[in-house]
């Protein structure tokens, strides 16, 4: 078999194994709950029967492995169980399906993240590559200093500065991103400008620094110097010698930052009251609504692992050394 194929299959298997272990970890969250959590969910006045019915619904009368299989089987089919909230002590059950809670908000989060990535990725790559090529120039230093300070700031600081300047002092953009499903696309984008700009500032800083480091590392390698000393034109050196080896680090940088974006969204959504999955998760953690927390954690972790896996595979596939084995 082609060596690339073997490596890719190995990596895929490893990724699946990681996903399995992570799902096991997230599932075991219920195991760590204190024994009287049913009381906390149903209220102090819950009757014996209500508690028993609730425990049966959660499957607490079954062994853990059976519950895991049941849970993961549901997850694969898009069923994350029912939320803990909305249950009354009298046994009246107004709880909602977790999927119904998560699905529309996941769409919103993906919209925000996608909108940010569309602008941030090309911008960061451009800044990173140009800073690496014109290393130590005034431009390089300026971009470097700016990004180092952005990285050191908490996301909510960046967010509130933007709100202060563009939402309050010079009210151009809306400082609340309260989108609704029936809103037209233009209106949605307009309302998402500030949250998206916050994420963009943070992510561009990270991505630009990583791209710059990767390119500088590459340009310092002996074969590039050799190509230069041979008298090749700068264009040829970059396109034919540097670029094939640059794909792997660049792809890695992009995937790493998209994964970062998925997580960074949590704080930004809370600041701008954006109805996304991050805010849902924070609310669920506050009210200790475990099924919703599990669903959100699984979605976040799954996205994160998948993005890293894709980056891994892409960097293997684009590696010239593996593509042309001797």
């Amino acid at each position: 078999m082609h060596p690339v194929l073997t490596t890719v299959i190995q990596r895929l298997a490893l990724g699946l194994l990681t996903l399995f272990l992570v799902s096991l970890l997230i599932f075991s969250a219920v195991e760590f709950l204190p024994g009287d959590f049913t009381q906390a969910v149903l209220g102090q006045s819950a009757t014996e029967e209500t508690v028993a019915a609730f425990r049966r619904e959660l499957g607490l009368d079954q062994p853990a492995w059976a519950r895991y299989l049941d849970w993961i089987g549901g997850v694969v089919q898009g069923d994350f169980g029912t939320s803990f909230s909305g249950r009354a002590a009298s046994g009246v059950n107004r709880s909602r399906e977790v999927v119904d809670l998560v699905a529309p908000r996941l769409m919103n989060t993906l919209f925000l993240a996608g909108m940010t990535a569309l602008v941030a990725v090309p911008l960061a790559l451009f800044l990173g590559i140009t800073a690496a090529l014109w290393r130590n120039s005034l431009y390089d230093r300026a971009v470097n200093a700016a990004t180092l300070s952005t990285i050191s700031m908490p996301e909510f600081f960046v967010a509130y500065i933007l709100i202060l300047v563009f939402g309050s002092l010079v009210p151009i953009f809306p400082s609340l991103a309260n989108v609704t499903p029936e809103m037209p696309l233009g209106e949605r984008i307009w309302r998402c400008i500030l949250p998206s700009a916050t994420l963009m500032l943070v992510i561009v800083a990270h991505m630009m620094r990583m791209t710059r480091a990767a390119i500088i590392n590459l340009l310092a390698s002996p074969y590039i110097e050799m190509a230069r000393l041979k008298g090749l034109s700068a264009r040829r050196v970059i396109l034919y010698h540097a670029l094939p080896n640059a794909w792997a680090p660049i792809v890695n940088v992009i995937a790493f930052n998209l994964a970062y974006l998925v997580v960074g969204v949590v704080v930004v959504e809370v600041v701008f009251v954006y109805p996304g999955i991050g805010q849902l998760m924070v609310d669920a953690v506050t009210s200790r609504d475990i099924p919703v927390v599990q669903a959100c954690a699984l979605i976040f972790a799954g996205t994160y692992i998948t993005l890293n896996l894709i980056a891994d595979i892409l960097s293997i596939v684009t590696n010239p050394r593996l593509l042309h084995p001797r």
């Binding site: 994964a259 949590v266 998760m281 972790a301 994160y304």
Partner: peptide, 12 residues
Amino acid sequence: AIPSLIFALMLL
């Protein structure tokens, strides 16, 4: 493999 903020939220 799990982003630490998400993990921390879950554990909290």
